[in-house]
Each structure stands twice: as C-alpha cells, then as structure tokens.
Computed example of a mutant assay.
Amino acid sequence: MKAAGGRLAAMNDILHPPAVERELAVDAVGLVKAFGAFRAVDGIDLQVRRGEVFGVLGPNGAGKTTTLSMLATLLPIDGGRASIFGVDVVAHPHRVRQLVGVTGQYASVDENLTATENLILFGRLLGQRTPQARRTAADLLERFGLADAADRQIQKFSGGMRRRLDLAASLIAQPPLIFLDEPTTGLDPRTRGQMWDTIRELVAQGSTILLTTQYLDEADQLADRIAVIDQGRKVAEGTPEQLKTSVGSSTLHIRLEDRAAGARAAAIVEQVLGEPPVLTPEAGGLNVALTDANRAADVLIALRQADLSISTAAVQQPTLDEVFLALTGHHTDDHDQTEEVA
C-alpha cells in the first residue's frame, strides 16, 4: 500500500507540481555536459518564467545549443538537474517531450515533400489521425503565411519559408514551451523581421519561448531577460536594460582624426575617469563607458587640451555588444569553435 501511495503521490507531483515550480517553465541548476575532457556546458543555471521570451546569448561554441539539447532531452545531462514545468528532465523525459516544441538551427523538413505533406507527416508521427493532421497542417500554413505555397516542394522554398515551416512543425502538438535554436541564422534582414513578428505573436498567444542567438539585436528586440554565456558558463543575466546599465549609464563614442593616436587618447581618458576605454582601431576611435553622462565634457576637454583632434563624438546608451565585450573581453563573433553535440 505504501508503494502504491508513493507512486500516486509522485504522479500527482508531475501533473500538479508545487506552486513555485508552476511559475517556472524551465528550472535548471548546475547543468554540465562534457565531451571527453572538454566541458561544453560547465555549471549553467537557467530559470525561465511562464509567458516570457528568455534569450541565451553567446558566440558559436559557447554552449547554447548543447544546453538547449539537454533541456529538450536530446542529450543526456552529465551533471546538475533540470525540470520543465516542474517535471524532471532525467526522470520523466517522455513527459517533458509532450511539453516542448523544438526548432533547431537546421530545418528538419523533407525537401522532396510539399509543405502540406511535411506537416501531415509530422502530425501522424505525433499520433494524429489523417483528417486531424490535414486540418492542423492547413491551419498552421495559414497562420504562418504559407498557404499559397502549401502544395510546393520544400526544395523550391526560400530559406525564410523553410524556417517558418520548421517552426510551424514544432507547434503541431501545441506545446506550452518552445525552444528556438538560432531561428534566424542565415536569413536576410526582411525575413528576420518576419520571424521576429511570428515569435511575438506566439508569446501573445500564451507560449513561453527559450531562444538561443548570437545576434545581439535579436536578443535586444525579443528577449524579456537574457543570460549571457561564454565558454560553457553563464557570465551575466538580466533584462536588456539591466545588462546595458551594468557597463555604464551611457557610452561616449569617439572617432579620432589620427587613427594612430588611439593609445594616447586611451591613456588620457583613463587618467580623467580612472577606467580605460575600449579601443576600436578599425574605426580609429574608442568607446568610453560613463557612469555620469556629464563626464563626457571632461573627456572631450582633456583630449582637446592634448591637441588630439576629434572627427565625431556622440553619447549613446550602451549596446549589448559593448556589454558582451565588457563581460568576456571579446565580441560575439570572435569564436570560430563549433559546439560539440552528439
């Protein structure tokens, strides 16, 4: 009787998790994934609230895809723990798969089938009867603006159309949590904007989205909160505004007339503010983080007194690129290492 009671209690916890856990779509603590001696993910914590877009920002090789793959049960977790809506990823992987939809970096559709045939196939694989799968396919094609291409083979689709169809396929089972792994990689700016609008519509309809990206503007546009990861570790987390504020309330962008004078200008700025600026040799200038925007005048006066001519100067709010540079010492596109996933 005790064993039966224990099993019933455990099942009740899965179907009706505690209130605190119900507030979190994803609760991951100390995630670790190793490939031999290399730790692709090294102790990452993630807490994603229901109804938000949570961005995981980092360069290629940072561990983004590996982290997502563990949460989606596509890779075993080597260390730490994770739950999806209170359901343990390791203990109940089949239950977790019913709660998530996954759109990977590369489209999973069959190029030799039409858009309708692809969605019907996915629907049948997910247990839908053929009539229901046809209705679901038609609804999703209309929703994603692909109805006119319903009977066209995927090999004739543009990259943006394929990505939208791939996202549509991940929604067949109407999962409450959607994993998007770099959904706009390789898309032109117009198509990226269309994908962004689609993602916003999904959130407005009640979905929770965990988004990985290496595009700073994408994280800034879409994410309610962002975790910055680098070399398998989380180095910061917060809203876009909080992350920007962490490197100063504003940034003074200076371009010198003499590009060779960058080091000398940097030394003067450090003397005035007590902190070194970030040099941008390719642009012949430097970016100066300011805790008080009024200090910009002090910097410009000091440079003028040193006979350093300035071609342009502007005070702006910090960008996420500057945040990432301040946190890691490099830009998001400085790594060429490819993430290892099995």
Rank of each mutant, 00 (worst) to 15 (best):
residue 127 G to S: 04
residue 125 L to W: 04
residue 124 R to E: 13
residue 125 L to Q: 11
residue 126 L to Q: 14
residue 112 N to A: 13
residue 103 T to C: 15
residue 118 N to Y: 05
residue 116 T to I: 14
residue 112 N to G: 13
residue 94 H to N: 15
residue 91 A to H: 11
residue 133 A to V: 05
residue 91 A to V: 13
residue 130 T to I: 08
residue 128 Q to T: 01
residue 90 V to N: 11
residue 105 Q to G: 03
residue 108 S to K: 04
residue 111 E to K: 09
residue 96 V to G: 03
residue 96 V to S: 01
residue 133 A to R: 04
residue 94 H to C: 15
residue 128 Q to K: 12
residue 130 T to V: 09
residue 96 V to N: 00
residue 129 R to W: 09
residue 103 T to A: 15
residue 93 P to G: 01
residue 107 A to N: 10
residue 95 R to K: 11
residue 114 T to D: 03
residue 100 V to W: 05
residue 113 L to F: 06
residue 119 L to Y: 03
residue 128 Q to I: 01
residue 126 L to T: 12
residue 92 H to V: 10
residue 131 P to K: 02
residue 100 V to R: 02
residue 128 Q to E: 12
residue 121 L to K: 12
residue 124 R to H: 05
residue 126 L to I: 14
residue 131 P to W: 00
residue 102 V to G: 14
residue 104 G to Y: 00
residue 133 A to M: 03
residue 111 E to W: 12
residue 115 A to T: 00
residue 125 L to H: 06
residue 113 L to Y: 02
residue 107 A to R: 09
residue 110 D to I: 05
residue 93 P to Q: 01
residue 132 Q to I: 04
residue 95 R to W: 07
residue 132 Q to Y: 07
residue 92 H to N: 11
residue 101 G to I: 07
residue 96 V to Y: 00
residue 124 R to K: 11
residue 104 G to T: 02
residue 91 A to S: 14
residue 125 L to V: 04
residue 100 V to C: 09
residue 123 G to P: 01
residue 116 T to F: 13
residue 104 G to S: 06
residue 120 I to G: 01
residue 124 R to I: 11
residue 102 V to P: 11
residue 106 Y to M: 04
residue 123 G to I: 10
residue 133 A to Y: 02
residue 120 I to E: 10
residue 132 Q to V: 08
residue 111 E to T: 08
residue 104 G to Q: 05
residue 91 A to D: 14
residue 106 Y to N: 07
residue 130 T to R: 14
residue 112 N to Y: 07
residue 92 H to C: 09
residue 111 E to L: 12
residue 103 T to H: 13
residue 92 H to I: 12
residue 130 T to Y: 07
